[in-house]
Nucleic acid binder design. Structure first.
Length: 419
RNA sequence: GGAGGCGUAGCGAAGUGGUCAUAACGCGGCGGUCUUGAAAACCGUUUGGUGGAAACGCCACGGGGGUUCGAGUCCCUCCGCCUCCGCCA
């Protein structure tokens, strides 16, 4: 969330920023509730100060065996007044909090202004889209032919949007995950294996709640949520903490299954590994000093890209425009891998700098020169494993239906060909 | 799942209805004295949030609610940790 005070004192600036985002946001409501709260706070605090003072007097009188009945009666009355103001505050506070939380992050000045993904700006490209002298097949056909991807069986045991990986398919998924983790840990990221279920507070902390509850799976027994991304458990690890400035940046990588309801995506990407209820992902998370978080976003994006370069998959990096940038993010780069079956680049990673937006919400600070300050949080996929599997199957397929194993994965696969 | 105990500053821990929560005491951290330097010893200093230009307030003892003129302290509830028992990969 943004700083309430900042919104109140820079209302026009915030409104201007919101006008470039998708959706409509009520900044005035925040300003309004803020001044209302301020007024109530003044009223109640003034009375509390008096009560505190008189209560001390009563204590003294009692100690000296005196009679304080008059004062006690007065305070009883004052107490009722205080309660009235507090009750009113109890209505305004949550309303204000909700209003503030409903305002998305302010995009960084370097973010291109635009409406939707059509206005995203390509930053760089690596490699060239695969060309072949035979017809390139989509990965779901390759997977079926090689008997390594089996959505039918998954549908029987679970439902649609699940896949059973079999044999070298399962092995490929595992090889990719291991390769990614090995690469990132060698780059200074500490490997984390977090719980795959988290509580409600964590979902609020990273911003999946309250707005996007229908996207998540909730466990009936205990109200826990299946993690939609490792960002949630890993970023929340430091919720409510004051970090040591000299430990920054803290860098984590985590491999988890991710669970998404994909509500509202009916009919989209119904075939293959692109959009599943359960998929594997390596996530990179950073807690950074505000002064260097923009640099950390660049290096995080490069770290994610390096995986694709090492495997040898063509991709491009785009900077999301203001209208397409996620709710909590201040700046986002998407990494898109070339998918022959789609005939275009498909998102395989999303790297974001949230500035202090998540940190304020989660109360993650560091002890700096000017007292405690909020850290900046960043994260990005490094990468989505299922989509990487799909991209490899398509980009490394051979005319005879086999798939060559990328060089760097051969040690993990124990073979150089899937056939 | 059952029984009991506990949750107070970075850590340990006192406080069991009032005028020492800017929280005793101990450890740690920071500054200093001493020392060639260090250790030891000694002295000093160390919670955060929020309102206000300031003066000066308000809030916070795991979270939430209640009783009271007044709650760290009493009551309810939720969460977490520990011990024992049961079950279990």
């Amino acid at each position: 969330m943004l700083d309430v005070r900042y919104i109140a004192e820079h209302a026009e600036e915030v409104k201007e920023a919101m006008s470039h985002r998708s959706g409509v946001y009520d900044v005035d409501k925040v300003v309004d509730l803020y001044s209302k709260r301020k007024k109530l706070l003044a009223e109640t605090e003034q009375r509390k100060a008096l009560r505190n003072k008189v209560s001390e007097q009563i204590a003294v009188i009692k100690k000296n065996k005196g009679n304080a009945d008059d004062l006690i009666a007065e305070m009883k009355e004052l107490g009722e007044e205080i309660k009235k103001f507090d009750d009113e505050l109890a209505l305004v506070e949550p309303a204000l909090k909700e209003a503030v939380m409903s305002i998305p992050n302010i995009p960084h000045p370097s973010v291109p202004i635009g409406k939707d993904d059509g206005d995203n700006v390509e930053v760089r490209r690596y490699g060239d889209p695969r060309k072949a002298d035979f017809e390139l097949k989509p990965h779901w056909d390759i997977g079926a032919a090689l008997n390594i991807l089996d959505p039918q069986t998954a549908a029987k045991i679970s439902g649609t949007r699940f896949t059973v990986y079999r044999g070298l398919g399962a092995r490929l998924e595992r090889a990719i995950a291991n390769f990614m983790l090995d690469t990132h840990t060698a780059n200074g990221y500490t490997e984390i294996l977090p719980p795959f279920m988290v509580n409600r507070d964590s979902m609020y902390g990273t911003g999946q709640l309250p707005k996007f509850e229908e996207d998540a799976f909730c466990v009936k027994n205990n109200g826990y949520f299946l993690v939609p991304t490792a960002e949630v458990p890993v970023t929340n690890m430091h919720r409510g903490e004051v970090l040591d400035e000299k430990d920054l940046p803290i860098k984590y990588c985590a491999y988890t299954a991710c669970f998404r309801a994909e509500a509202g995506s009916a009919g989209r990407d119904t075939r293959g590994l692109i959009r599943q209820h359960q998929f594997n992902k390596i996530e990179l998370v950073k807690f950074a000093h505000p002064s260097s978080s923009m640099d950390e976003l660049e290096s995080l994006t490069r770290d994610a890209e390096s995986i694709l370069q090492k495997i040898g998959l063509p991709y491009r990096v785009v900077c999301l425009c203001t209208g397409d940038t996620g709710f909590s993010s201040g700046k986002t780069y998407d990494i898109e891998v070339w998918m022959p079956s789609y005939g275009r680049y498909v998102e395989i990673s999303s790297c974001s700098n949230f500035f202090d937006y998540q940190a304020r919400r989660m109360n993650i600070k560091f002890k700096g020169a000017n007292g405690n300050e909020f850290v900046h949080t960043l994260n990005g996929s490094g990468l989505a494993v299922g989509r990487t599997t799909a991209a490899i199957l398509e980009n490394f397929q051979n005319k005879d239906g086999s798939v060559s194993v990328p060089q760097v994965l051969i040690p993990y696969m124990g073979t150089d060909i899937i056939k």
